[in-house]
Write a protein that binds this DNA or RNA. Structure first.
Lengths: 232, 232
DNA sequence: ATTCATAATATGTGCGCACAAAACATGTCA
DNA sequence: TGACATGTTTTGTGCGCACATATTATGAAT
């Protein structure tokens, strides 16, 4: 059948076409790598490379000894890049600025303790700040920082560098949970954001850990009209 | 120095630690794979595997002949799985239902033509449908389907299977653009969703193509309180 | 100085091999 | 029957090699 050697992309595309065209259905088992390699006239490592890609894309599931199966519930998998807010603003060609609204050492409220996956209370630094693009409100962030994990943050001048930027640059994280939802601007948020009271705002919530130690959780309230889109 | 052979994960973690700790700064160039391999006591292919991972995670950028550099603008990269709505509802333990509100062949409005990256007008099937969880509104979708690319859709009984599910199962796509934002429910949407007028709703907009041919663009308006989160 | 062909170099791909590790199957023993 | 050890199967990892490919650097010719 096939004569020319196939590249891993060709192998991937061939299998993907089989799945997407319905020749393979969700839940179906695929031949083992070695058989596919023989059939497609390539090395097993090439099939492996193709499968690695398909697996990461969420199209197939692989298990040792269990073989490879078409994912039973097809999904659309999307990847987003969330940059440092300053970079995001500057990439839009706007002038970046930020205002520290409040910084205070507080015990973590129950919602934050829950977000951190903890039971016991946690000492936190609460930081509220407004990111500006060309002087106009861009993102309002309400942030809790676990001072036990990040004690140095207390020595940082948060009027000079935003907690967002300092943390991303200085605190590696091993786990990051993200959540998106919509809220209506309450009077206070509306005033800070220069939005109409009741306006619909996209919220990006992010919590990070290093190992099992919580670092920070932040509620980023975006300005009216803000859109988040997949990288191209 | 190092004696034990390193696995690609160890190599990846070592390099990642160098980046995140600041020993390597954004924009810095890394040694070439071969030197890293010698230094870390492993094969070049192992370094290659580690770099592949770091590159996909957005931590480094690699170019042939240009070498490897730490990405100049650090980002948080997040991956979402957007399942078929029926699966999503059922995974929450709820009973799925859906109602076809309207289906009509219409010329694509300008916004849709733009979303499809086209200039000329396009014949579309407009479909409006409501997805239900336990009988309650879950997602309202407004969808335009390019009938030139997907003529078979006209023969599908959209009261029996949702356009969402039919398309995902029958129409492979090669490109998918996603966009999230918040809207306020206008009176009609509020009535359909059983929400208060003016409620903040998360909208997921998705456009797919096969090759350069548009398939569909959909505006999925979610019920109040809907949250989208990264897969765990 | 500018343009263009050419060389040098780092990453990307592919192969074949060997062994590791997970997960499932089987059979033994109580 | 049930718990547990053992074997088998499939994917995962690692190595070393050769060559492909993209990109930058070099230098010649105008």
């Amino acid at each position: 059948m096939a004569e020319a050697r196939r590249s891993w992309r060709e192998v991937r595309d061939a299998i993907r076409a089989d799945i997407l065209s319905g020749r393979l259905s969700p839940g179906d088992r695929l031949p083992r790598d070695e058989d596919l390699a023989r059939r497609l006239n390539c090395a097993r490592s090439t099939v492996q490379r193709a499968m690695q890609d398909l697996s990461q894309a969420g199209l197939v599931e692989r298990r040792r000894r269990g073989g490879t199966r078409v994912r039973p519930d097809p999904v659309t998998r999307a990847t987003f890049d969330i940059p440092i807010t300053r970079h995001e603003v500057e990439a839009r060609g706007a002038r970046y600025g930020h205002q520290l609204i409040r910084a205070a050492e507080l015990p973590a409220p129950p919602a934050v303790v829950a977000a951190f996956d903890l039971h016991s209370p946690e000492r936190t630094l609460y930081v509220e700040a407004l990111h500006l693009a060309d002087g106009r409100p861009y993102i309002l962030e309400e942030r809790w920082i676990a001072t036990r994990t990040v004690p140095e943050i207390r020595a940082v001048d948060l009027t000079r560098i935003s907690a967002n930027e300092w943390l991303v640059l200085n605190r590696p994280y091993s786990r990051c949970d993200l959540r998106f939802y919509a809220i209506q601007a309450d009077p206070r948020v509306a005033r800070l954001m220069g939005a109409a009271p009741g306006a619909a705002l996209l919220v990006i919530e992010r919590t990070t850990w290093i190992g099992s130690e919580p670092i920070t959780t932040v509620r980023a309230i975006t300005a009216p009209g803000y859109q988040l889109q997949t990288r191209t």
